[in-house]
Design a protein around this nucleic acid. Structure first.
Lengths: 260, 260
DNA sequence: GTATTGATCTCGTGC
DNA sequence: GCACGAGGTCAATAC
């Protein structure tokens, strides 16, 4: 089996194993007592402690403590790993450019080092994403509202691509913004940008909304809108609901996956 | 140091080690060939392949392939790990509630299993965050613009807390939104929400309070906005710049850390 | 390369 | 518990 593993190695022994593992393109895990420092997009220091260092052949480096889903320190894929023994410590440095950043892990003790050749088997089939929600709607447009007709997905606009563009039963243009989970006010802002961009593009002028300054698309919900906005999400927060009402947008409660 | 480590263990042997490690509250790493399935906020399946499984005493579980900073599958902290041998495979299941979700890892082969007791040493000192940017501005308000006077940070509003609230040289209220890096249109929307909320708030106060506020609260609707918005960030995208101009907001180029 | 947005985002903080 | 926003976010995609 292609796993090498050393228990309580000397620094020099650990160094050999690391260099071999880098050479082979192995996935490496190192248990040990170390300090960590990072400099790049920000800068950080982490005092001595026991941690797990994971080094990947694609250049990713992860320093994990006993808590949290997130590594306490890391280096993104595309970095270069190097190892050396300096000042009686095993030093692992991972660097990359653009942006320039460096992660340095200094081990006073290495307790356990393992390396394994790993290939393939990384394609995940995932269900329940925003894309699934879109598929669901395209297959059954009536879920949005009776008479809704999708015309285009990822339709380009000055404000970027809108999730779904279509028309309602009256033929009024509709912008649909999809979210796979409960949303806050930011999603309403996003929808508003698309609606506004489409209104400008279609040459639909809103009544009395061109004083520059703070005019930001407020409308009277009683007005017949030039372009409608519909937010499709399982639910919305109170503040988002307020903002939806302000803009005259609708919310449709829908999950990315059908109820089971 | 208490590191246990087994190479090419039988499933039963691996099971013992796992259960002991769970008992002791160890940080665990497992190299092996496995399939992974997840069901909860979404659902996913991953075919057989060699991976690294990390199990943390706080309940976090991470499945890593040879690529990427992100685990291909995971379970958040607060989950419960369990292990068993079923159908000739070593099965590790991690579950949590609220939301209900389950990660199942089935090993056909375990190549290497290590466990280490880990405590403390997880407080990181980080520099270059948004908070550093705020500190910088509070110490030298002139960086925003000459005459700017910060009055409050995290000032509450109907739209949430604004990063910095203050007044400019003319006494006009100013909302400052801070970003540690280059920003897109979303940040302008965020700033706009705060400015709008503050305008409404001040409008209500003026209407409800006959004395008006301080003398410097006067403004000319045609000329100056009631509330100014300033986005402080290293830089902004074109679309964000457009949007800033639309709203009449200003951009101040500033890094979280002084140039070196 | 930059820009934009989704994510099983995670994580902290405040209510 | 929910809501809101930051993050060295990461990662995919379009340009």
């Amino acid at each position: 089996m292609t796993v090498t593993s050393v228990h309580d190695p000397s620094h020099r022994e650990a160094l050999w194993e690391l260099e071999d593992a880098f050479e082979r393109g192995d996935l490496v895990s190192v248990f040990g007592t170390c300090t960590v420092s990072y400099e790049g997009r920000a800068a950080s220091d982490l005092g001595a402690g026991d941690r797990l260092l994971v080094l990947k052949p694609d250049g990713a480096a992860l320093v994990h403590t006993d808590e949290g889903r997130q590594p306490v320190n890391w280096q993104p894929p595309g970095s270069q790993h190097r190892a050396a023994v300096r000042d009686g410590r095993l030093r692992v440095v991972s660097t990359r450019s653009n942006p320039d950043e460096t992660l340095t892990v200094r081990f006073s003790d290495v307790h356990q080092l393992s390396a394994m050749a790993v290939t393939g088997g990384r394609d995940l089939t995932l269900h329940g994403s925003e894309e699934d929600l879109r598929t669901r709607i395209l297959e059954r447009p009536g879920l949005v509202e009776p008479g809704f007709e999708p015309r285009e997905t990822e339709r380009p606009s000055n404000a970027g691509p809108m999730d779904v563009f279509g028309v309602d039963a009256d033929g009024t243009p509709v912008v649909v913004e999809l979210k796979r989970r409960r949303v806050g006010p930011d999603a309403v802002g996003q929808l508003a940008r698309y609606v506004r961009a489409l209104e400008e593009e279609l040459g639909i002028e809103e009544a009395a909304d061109d004083n520059g300054g703070t005019g930001d698309g407020d409308r009277d919900p009683d007005d017949a809108p030039g372009v409608r906005g519909i937010l499709v999400a399982p639910s919305v927060t109170d503040r988002a609901a307020e903002r939806l009402a302000d803009r005259g947008f609708d919310h449709v409660a829908l999950d990315p996956t059908p109820a089971e």
